[in-house]
Design a protein around this nucleic acid. Sequence first.
RNA 1: GGAUGCUUAGCUCAGCUGGGAGAGCAUCGCCUUUACACGGCGGAGGUCGUGGGUUCGAGUCCCUCAGCAUCCACCA
Length: 863
Amino acid sequence: MLDKRYNPKSVEEGKYEKWKKAGYFTAGDKSKQAFSMVIPPPNVTGKLHLGHAWDTTIQDIIARYKKMKGYDVLWVPGMDHAGIATQAKVMERLKKMGVDVTKITREEFLKEAWGWKDEYAASIHSQWAKLGLTLDYTRERFTLDEGLNYAVRTVFTRLYKKGLIYQGERIINWDPVQKTALSNIEVIHQDDHGYMYYFKYHIVGSDDYLLVATTRPETMFGDVCVVVNPKDERYTKYIGMKVINPANDEIIPIIGDEYVDIEFGTGAMKCTPAHDPNDFVIGEKYHFPKPIIMNKDATMNEKCGKYQGMDRFVCREALLKDIEAKGDFVKKEEIVHPVGHSERSNAVVEPMLSKQWFVKMESLAKHSLDNQKSKGKVSFIPPRFENTFTNWMENVEDWCISRQLWWGHRIPAYYHKKTNEVYVDVNPPEDIENYVQDEDVLDTWFSSALWPFSTLGWPEKTPDLERYFPTNILSTGYDIIFFWVSRMIFQSLEMNDIRPFDNVLIHGLVRDEQGRKMSKSLGNGIDPMDVIDRHGVDALRYFLTTNSTPGQDMRYIEEKVVSASNYLNKIWNSARYVLSVLGDDFREEKLDTKRLSPLDNWLINKLMDTIKGVSEAMERYDFNSASSYLYNFVYDDFCSNYLEMSKVSLNGDDEEMKMMTKQVLIFTLKNIIKLIYPYTPFIAEEMYLNLPNHLESIMLETYPEYDESMINLKANKEVELLFDFIKDSRTYKIENKLAPNEKIAIAINLRIPVFNGFMAYLSRFTFAKEIKEEKDIMNIQGHLYVHDDGDMVIINEVSNDEILLKLNKEIEFEENEIRRCEGMLNNPNFVSKAPKEKVDAERNKLKQHQDNLASLLEKKAKL
RNA sequence: GGAUGCUUAGCUCAGCUGGGAGAGCAUCGCCUUUACACGGCGGAGGUCGUGGGUUCGAGUCCCUCAGCAUCCACCA
């Protein structure tokens, strides 16, 4: 028996372990059609946040739904080693432990990192369990495990041999805190306050000088020339002459190149090929040397004379002072300009020339873009995110994949000790003793990009890969379309010549109550485990998946979780009621719609509509609509109307009717439980296991099916009329300050035949002491209520004035409606151009309103 | 400089292919009616950001503008 109040804690207890133990999460039933997904692997750096809870609940709903629909569902779990992030955290911990991290060896570090991984993996596992995720743990993977490493080496080697991976010296984004290269998308550009500094570059053999502006004076040590636009009349005369670099007094040439914008700044640009990507291009074009003037930690190097060893920002100030003393510092202007910061360390990124490994993106991007024009395209939900993806692909630059870290997949490149020849292969060279392996590891996203197939055993042709790849759908936030989705797509197309998943379901971000992003610095993050503690996981799941539109951000609002919990309590209590009225001798039968009462039929009709609406929405992954169909059915149709009415037949003495009411109650309840189940599996399971006929678990059940043969509309209008009358009586009592159970006398005039028992229901729910049925109710003193299929008068002795007041209000309403209908119908364009059904519908409405008006006027005349 | 999203009831948000504006919370009134007071019943509350256009008909389609948010972009 169910408790009086739905208690999440007791409901949730033990269920997940039971499901897991029973093997319900394990895929492999070959008799069914396969349906597969991979979880976006969370980083092993911390706790799951609300975004994870949202994303994984969406997937869990899909998994549970598809399982009920008869699919063999595989949902692959796993975690990401998260190179930079994890290495930073492990280093931090080592420092706290008092370890001198500058002296630690690679092996020692890795041992520590694996220990860290195990700790955090355990914590993530327990959070997944709390969330109730139906993950197939027998197939769990880690982005750094041996199998995935094999996949990574294979992909690297294949791309290298095709010439799509190369080693090159190029300007990369250098993170001076983590001391590693970064890819372009790991750099966050934010508007910072800074200065534009103006310096005199004196022209050799002249009194003139060029005024040159820069935001980074410390890079002046790397200047190789000053560039002006050859069309710039101010400067053409200087092209070919030389200037003195005020930082180090070196003499450098003035050259002309169209790249320089005449309008911008002073029109004269200093060129520092090793520390700026554009300058690099110019440096290449004119064959300048590319002096690097900084160390890996962003201190100045030996090329900077007395500034050597200074931090770049310290150097900037010192240099300014010195140049000012010489009189060559003209001014500084305060500006706001975009400055690149490392996504992980937040350090200001230094563009720097460096030898790194790159993925050549041109052909890979083209392959992806072409594929989006084919039948095998990846469908984005909502579709607008396809543009996000294609725009990025169209403008993508080569991907810097090497990282100067220890925690990651070591690059499978080996350098011959003597010849320095490079050897790249899946396996090390046989005479490994003659080689040294590249020290660097790969960008974390290089391994994540293979996730949908590497987890299934690729490059081996495993049975899982055959059966479950490509996967059906991938769910993720729009913030990692570039990082992850796009890379999975091009890697899969390149390696397998097929998309990695048919659909991508994109959701937004969870924000705080004020709409701000949740972040550590703001301290406004919400721990999903705390929410679960307070309100239960089902309420959290329901809140997360039913409160937003696909692709849109969502605010976390505690009261909405409470609402969700109240809704679940409502269903819980309706279940409690149904179970309490069944009685010991109850035996569930297949519902025979021919034996049902009009009221029963009405409910079953509504239920069928609901099943249809919910199922169609589920197929579109439109969880918001699906849940609201069910919500309305549960509250209005089932609880407010049918459940209350069922008390009449259950307390009556018609045994057949009583029995059928019970059958309808249990049938409907069971369907409600199944429909809500994918959202709120714990409470659904608890209620399900209390039903008279149940399997071992609701996880073995099938999804409700819309069954047209169960629909019977014969008495639907009569039931609706009954509800109308009951509502009228309630409104009447409230308007006239009567108690809800105040006895009233009513008279009705029916224009349609009604079912047996109509009067009994009417009497009971209006608390009527008397019901007169007569055609001529217009003569009866009281309040008139007009409906399409019948009228009702609540008999009383109120003054004519009061009645008149009310009548006039209703007459006005009907007249307005008639005017509206006539307006449309008198418009020849409407009649000729609108669809016939619409016109007919308007005609019917007009007729109805005219009839209603006639009744009201008749009543008025008789006052 | 490109691109996208948002602007609907006091607040947070739904409104699919155009055909009489919805939910939750808040608010007001009544009710200890035997599933639920974490409840029931009944209300009130909206010129759907601005200005145009298409259409018989626009919250819904097109254009303009404004405000807010986000993403992308090498401007020294």
